[in-house]
Design a binder for these strands. Structure first.
Lengths: 222, 222, 222, 222
DNA sequence: CATGAATGAGACTTCATTCAT
DNA sequence: CATGAATGAAGTCTCATTCAT
């Protein structure tokens, strides 16, 4: 589904690395990092178990690589989305909507970023996660712009505001991902169409946008 | 089972169960559920490995029990804190401050609730987590009151608002917990004094409160 | 069911020992020695786990005691049955029929003697099983009488003949016990009425008797 | 899986499976199924513990596989032995002698089949043991032939006769196996009297044959 | 580069037995 | 005598990782 390298029929070197990353993304999303089996990732990638160790140092390294790669893509998508805009408020709204669209379109990416991100900070001694820092920086930049333009309240430090905004987005993503995700066995549908009873996360973006922008709005009279 | 023997100094039955829960809380917080070793929990609780299985069916059951017990305490504390208040806005502010105080005072509780809550939803097929539902209900109730009183914007459904608020609180808790939490081996300091470089999470409560209440504020002119 | 001591309402000392033996018989029959749990025997006997160790040195000792006690009863029953008879051939026939009746009436006794007897010889270093020796001696005595009387062939040593006869009886018992014993969960029926599809083991006694007596019959022309 | 690589000196895949089966046969024979340790089987097979689980699903599965494999071999040997014979009586005699020779030549096979067969029927819910059924069918076939030829008494149903015959053989096997079976674990008695006291089981075959054939002989005058 | 059979450390859990009450 | 909570040794099985082919 999120297959950029699918047109390559042969197993070129880069292709194989990508296939492993894709498989890892799906398996980690499905099972969680600890429960995920290297052998299953290999099977899903169509390579031998040992091959994974030609491209990644360890299972940990594989998880980190999935992070970096996916987060980079997310950051790029978000940066592109707000690139042409001038109004900080519009940038913020677009950022929010684009993020939630990504969650809907690539649930297993969201799963990994949302759920595994936390565990990872703990079990890996000092994985500083620079891409996530990039994400926060990008968001904080939008907020700072708004503050500089006088559109947004300057009381709250922009990095803290970014963090809170991420909290809202992340929680919504989690709520949406878990809704109707009652049977983890339904492997095939992980990336498939959302379950019927899930709320529409992108329509929720309106509320979220209102909540966040208003929350940060400049208080003229207070 | 025997629920109110906590003040007993001797190792009464209930006491032992509590000691295991306390130890599990700390070890889960430190290592994460998967990396936590039952034998370490036993050692930390001062009981034999097998004793744990007299009180809990499995490691999974132990995690669930820690959840339920801690979440129940959190809910009680929050409910008590807002019990005497009448203004919805004040309730909301108090809820937020109390939650963040809890995070600061009992970091390992926060760790378990914040980090493990997510994994748990995945690896346990159908652990519906009723206490967390209670938490959300309590918070949504406060929001709904504010909406009914005309203080808060009714556009956003109260349950969704509650979820977003929790997202903010949760993300802040996580950010605070991970700041300076670079070495999980420093067992002794898990519940000890916060690392110097951590921001003051309770002082952040002001910003958070402002962000959230303003975010939900009624828009007179919209 | 096979409760000789049921009339004692109170738990007199001897009564308790008997109750433990009865419970052990049933549980060993149901689960086999290794899978049997001491705690289940205790529960079924209506005593505490530790109480068993006031009467028996170990789980092994308990199994041995069940053997000895049951085998003694079997031997007594068989000895009584042939006591009044004079014809060796009739003694043999009666021995066979009585044994198979015992199997039908007390299947859990048969289960223990038939199935567990074998394992026991192995896992217990040097349990010589004197009661089983008594059994063989009793049977060999009958054969020897018949040989002395000229009714039975003297070519086969009586002890070996006894062993072969036991083999036939034991195999039939086993076949009968396992027939329809398809669901071990049906605990309640272990000592209950035989399953419908089981062959009638006592009617089979006729064939068995014919097979054995004829097999040992004196060959007039050899 | 790869079934005919037994002559290969190197550790080919099939070879390893065979080596595990051989080791399991010996260890099960020595210690019994429950007391047998997977790690000891692995050591005796010269493989790592985990390797066993590449070839067998569980310890139970390993026992079943030993059964099937050994019983199949026994059946084949017996079928071959009687293949060229025409007289039912001779077939029966040969069957008996061949079986007892097998016991003498491969005691650990006999041990597993004789002792463990019983336990297995109990602890495994529904292991129907088709090879043992084959064995009984083969033997019953011989009896039926004899009955059809008028050589053997038709009163006893052939399957029941087969069962009784097996009882005799099995009991003799057990008696022989346990005689002087000073259990390798019994270090103290290693220096004790050698196996001298074992009777010659194959010479006993004569008696057994006489007992059985005469037992089934047609009664001309009854 | 790729394979996948083999490794072996180590986790969870059970359960016979003890002993303070 | 009786209890039953507690013990802790030990076993089965898993799975990340390696390395000979």
């Amino acid at each position: 589904m999120t297959a950029h390298s699918s047109e390559a029929g042969r197993a070129s070197s880069g292709d194989k690395r990508e296939r492993i990353l894709d498989a890892a993304e799906r398996v980690f999303a499905r099972a969680g990092f600890f429960a995920a089996r290297v052998s299953e990732i290999a099977r899903e990638a169509g390579v031998a178990d040992g091959t994974i160790y030609l491209y990644f140092k360890s299972k940990d390294d594989l998880l980190i690589s999935v992070f970096e790669s996916r987060m980079e893509r997310v950051n790029q998508t978000l940066a592109d989305a707000i690139a042409g805009l001038t109004s900080p408020r519009q940038k913020l709204t677009t950022f929010i909507r684009t993020y939630l669209e990504l969650v809907r379109e690539q649930p297993s990416v969201a799963e990994v970023l949302t759920v595994e991100l936390r565990q990872s900070s703990k079990f890996m001694k000092s994985f500083s996660n620079p891409r996530f820092a990039d994400f926060l920086r990008l968001l904080a930049g939008v907020v700072a712009e708004g503050q500089a333009a006088g559109e947004l309240d300057s009381t709250i430090p922009a990095p803290m505001a970014a963090r809170m905004i991420f909290g809202v987005l992340d929680e919504l993503a989690l709520a949406w991902l878990l809704a109707g995700d009652s049977s983890p066995e339904l492997i095939d549908t992980v990336d498939g169409p959302p379950k019927a009873k899930k709320f529409d996360i992108v329509r929720a973006a309106e509320w979220v946008g209102a909540f966040i922008t208003q929350g940060l709005e400049r208080r003229s009279n207070v």
